[in-house]
Design a protein around this nucleic acid. Structure first.
Length: 224
DNA sequence: TCATTAAATTGTT
DNA sequence: AACAATTTAATGA
């Protein structure tokens, strides 16, 4: 995907809009590019946009007062985030950092609230997305408390390819093993071992700085 | 287009 | 955490 229009075309909620509504959203939503390593937004900032990933990969992180960083989840192409802060807190609760060059779409609060107030399809989409996220986080807790490292890595990768949250995601993501470690809460060395196991099992292919998914269901169910 | 070099990533201990 | 090996991207001939 290259443009905001591409992202909207791939987004389920935008398909139920009539042409005039669609054009209004396109006109009011702006694209912005971030280099790898840049912060798309910071914790504590006022939330003025709902944000979609046109192309790229970001992670949600939080920095503790003691200076430790933890990664909650990654968001890939086709995904939208920030509706929680937009609806509730009005300030960003997490840092969002680009893991590689990333183009985002910024939908102003006013546009978001207009859709929320007028379009049933949009509301249905938000319900579905919130529900899917809840399932994702429940899965994270389960993986973290019950599963051994191979399964945690498998589960974390599978969540990056969630077809409901990230409809445009290809079978292929450029991501280093170090970042997979942050996402799954496992050391880089252990990620390396896990990836070799998963590759032998035929669930994925390991390339330099890149993971290709061969069997998403296999990954999702690994270790269960 | 090819060779060189620096930087990033990987595999292993 | 440290190390060597490998791959990529950038640079310039």
């Amino acid at each position: 995907m290259d443009t905001v229009k591409d992202l909207l075309s791939a987004s389920l909620w935008a398909r139920s809009l009539n042409p005039a509504q669609f054009e209004r959203v396109v006109a009011e939503t702006q694209a912005r590019d971030f280099p790898s390593g840049a912060y798309v937004c910071r914790k504590g900032e006022a939330v003025e946009h709902w944000i979609g990933i046109v192309d790229g990969l970001v992670k949600m992180t939080s920095l503790s007062p003691a200076g430790k960083t933890t990664t909650f989840t990654g968001v890939t192409s086709g995904g939208w985030f920030g509706e929680g802060s937009l609806l509730k807190d009005k300030t960003r609760k997490y840092d969002i950092e680009a893991l590689r060059p990333t183009r985002v779409a910024l939908m102003p609060r006013a546009t978001f609230e207009w859709l929320l107030g007028t379009d049933i399809g949009f509301n249905r989409f938000l319900l579905m997305q919130l529900n899917e996220r809840l399932g994702q986080f429940i899965s994270v807790v389960e993986l973290e408390r019950l599963m051994e490292p191979d399964a945690r890595v498998a589960g974390s990768l599978a969540s990056l390819f969630n077809p409901v949250l990230y409809p445009d995601q290809a079978t292929d993501i450029p991501i280093s093993q170090e970042e997979i470690g942050y996402l799954s809460g496992v050391s880089r060395q252990r990620v390396n071992q896990a990836l070799q196991v998963l590759e032998k099992a035929g669930h994925l292919k390991v390339d330099y700085g890149r993971i290709r998914i061969l069997d998403l269901e296999g990954l999702r169910n690994f270790g269960r």
